[in-house]
Design a protein around this nucleic acid. Structure first.
Lengths: 410, 410
DNA sequence: GGTACTTTATTTAGTACTGAACAAAGAGGT
DNA sequence: ACCTCTTTGTTCAGTACTAAATAAAGTACC
């Protein structure tokens, strides 16, 4: 009863689809995954016998036989997600449905020589108290670029990591599939599956914080571009000969509306003193200081114009904005909305913009999502990680039940 | 011996791959198309018997058994491509390898009530003298948006067509698969298959002419976005409160570097008189007039900054620039190159920019390419057109040879 | 309450495809 | 000359999947 790569592929697709879309009928599954109803009958029979899914209530009929909905057995599998930033990590465990089961945040210094060992230690403690019967893998979200996704070599100036084979190291330590990706891409994956982008095949997920970035959902999947740096909207040129940017350019979007840029601007205008931080600026704006409000509104204006260009180019169905910066969105908004709408082509002028309050968990959840979504690129970016995850998903069935399945099919 | 949708799918994929990549070995085909070598042996046996492909010379060995290359039998199939603009059409016939076999340009007035009938008449004459043994379909490139690709409903302000079911009309008239698409997308498809973007899975094809547009090749396919209007880089906001654009906005890229904008600017500065056109401006620049040269260079500067933003966002491997505007590229270049390079993130700073002289045929070739490339989205955008094309491709085998095949497999 | 129509799910016969073993044909070393 | 290694291509048994017919279970209309 050894199962080939192809079987596991469609099996995993069924589980992931139910996981992201909720309980679904066999007929809907067949249509959505582009396979025949006959195959769905077979696969669901196996999955039911193995205890990975269960039959739920009937869906009300719309002029035909009512559909029996199939739902996931929640503890059929789980995944670990880690978000790494310079001074701390956030770890979550999610069920196969993507729901966060538990989470933890630990201080962490990425700049030490033993950072990876420390990370492994922290993860080991977290994983040891895992509630899932079987972990499918570990997803890691990093502020930086990943050279080869299959190996997981990290290049991150923010963390001070260069050519660090993080994926390989973690794989060795835990003997689990490990997927490493850029943090914005991970976040976009989570938004596409469980967040505001759910159900939209084309979406733009924008983060405003220290930097400005975007995750692009194109035709239902995260788009990474040729060298994996797609979504660098923080370096769209805005103000000619503007302030110097980290990238070496002048007047990049990030250099004029990033957190540091806002503080600099406020100090220059005397709204903040030399030691006061962005939080103070926000408080002043909240309490009605027009000068403080103006700084946010101007940033919103510039962001709106830049995003209009991106939306005209990419034609997404929805724009989602989040990150630390989104916490003062009520002030950004005054500049953002008119700038965006007036610069969009008529066809896109009504595009919805959703703002999500910033949750640290979401990023880590996104990292875990990588594990739940990548079983499908077969020989794609993630190399054989996808196949590995599929194998583990197949194995998570009760060994006893497997015999029943074999009998049932003969 | 009726063949199912799945067979035709892989068969067509084999033919199209050889068509776009040139003669290929069975092993390479299996690897590239992601199927097993065993299947490739079977499929090529059939295709050889049916006379659609032929065995060519051996490829030199690199430490193993030398590979036998397989090439297309050129007259195995063909396609018609049409480019429609306001005052004329260009029609080409291409072989299954994508090479243009013949072409024609006819005057055409899109604004008349009987425009579609006229178009059908012109096409009928062209098709009647077809050299292909079997036409696989017709591709049409339109300056405008296509609402439903499967039906081919056209929305084009440039042609004065609104909710025109062009695809359905042509399908009815010729009883052939018809694919209608935006002209820039068609051009991008041609560039990806046979042009400068060949071999690059991520490319940006920019056209400069009356308007400014872009075709996006993402992960190997033309990216259309949610409502099919992706690539509208002509409406990226550049100059705040700049000149009025057709779209109703102010200072769109197209409104400051489009042909009309350049003429307006030249007249304003006294470089052109009221009746002189863009050609005169180019001649002046060619002969060394610094004021004329400056107008082009400034346009290049603005284009460079805008494209830098797009490249940072999309991370293509190569940028290709063409269209009428590219004819005076030597003058644009002076402003374009420094602006682009200085605004790119370090990782993309060395991206190659290719400029192609403008050929009317390329657009029409691109339209024909749609027929050769879309057999693969199965139940995708093109509805059942893809399946229809696959059927015709299967039928183009000699009826006599089919029996041999059947025998050979048993 | 029957008839017509829809939609969901299963069965069955047959096709498309894979994996693994093997044969064929070369390069490179000793 | 012989062995080892690499790569291409084929054979064959078995798996993954489909299409078409059919059953199951409802709605809608008269």
């Amino acid at each position: 009863m050894q199962s080939s790569a192809r079987t596991d592929m469609t099996r995993s697709a069924v589980l992931t689809f139910i996981g992201s879309h909720g309980p679904t009928s066999r007929a809907d599954l067949a249509r959505s995954l582009g396979v025949s109803p006959a195959l769905m009958t077979q696969l669901t029979k196996d999955l039911l016998n193995e205890g990975l899914i269960s039959e739920l209530e009937y869906s009300p009929s719309r002029g035909g036989r009512p559909a029996r909905l199939l739902g996931l057995v929640v503890d059929a599998g789980g995944a670990i997600g880690v978000k790494v930033v310079a001074d701390h990590i956030t770890v979550v465990e999610v069920g196969i449905t993507g729901t966060v089961l538990r989470s933890a945040t630990e201080p962490f210094d990425a700049s030490t020589m033993t950072a990876v060992e420390t990370l492994i230690g922290l993860l080991r403690i977290f994983i040891n108290s895992s509630v899932s019967t079987r972990l499918l893998g570990i997803g890691v979200a990093i502020p930086g670029n990943i050279d080869e996704q299959s190996v997981g070599t990290v290049e991150s100036t923010q963390l001070g990591w260069s050519r660090l084979p993080l994926g390989a190291r973690l794989r060795e330590a835990f003997d689990l599939p490990v997927l490493v990706d850029n943090n914005v891409n991970a976040l976009a994956a989570a938004e596409a599956l469980y967040g505001q982008a759910k159900g939209h095949a084309n979406a733009l997920v924008v983060t405003i914080g220290t930097g400005v970035g975007a995750g692009i959902i194109a035709d239902g999947v995260v788009f990474r571009g040729h060298s994996g740096v797609a979504g660098e909207i923080g370096h769209i040129p805005t103000i000619e000969n503007g302030p110097l940017c980290q990238c070496g350019g002048h007047g990049c979007l990030e250099a004029v509306i990033g957190q540091q840029a806002l503080v600099d601007q406020a100090r220059k205008r005397g709204v903040l003193t030399g030691s006061e931080t962005l939080g103070v600026l926000r408080d002043r704006a909240d309490s009605g200081d027009p000068d403080a409000q103006k700084i946010f509104a101007e940033a919103g204006h510039l962001l709106g114009r830049a995003l209009a260009g991106v939306v005209n180019t990419l034609d997404p169905e929805v724009v989602i904005i989040l990150g630390e910066g989104a916490e003062s969105w009520q002030h950004w908004m005054y500049g953002f909305e008119p700038a965006l709408r007036s610069c969009l082509v008529p066809a896109k002028r009504g595009i919805p913009v959703a703002v999500e309050s910033w949750q640290d968990d979401r990023w880590a959840q996104g990292a875990a999502c990588l594990v739940l979504t990548t079983p499908f690129d077969e020989q794609g970016l993630s190399g054989d990680q996808g196949q590995w995850i599929r194998r583990r998903l197949a194995k998570s069935a009760q060994p006893g039940a497997a015999d029943v399945t074999t009998k049932a099919r003969q």
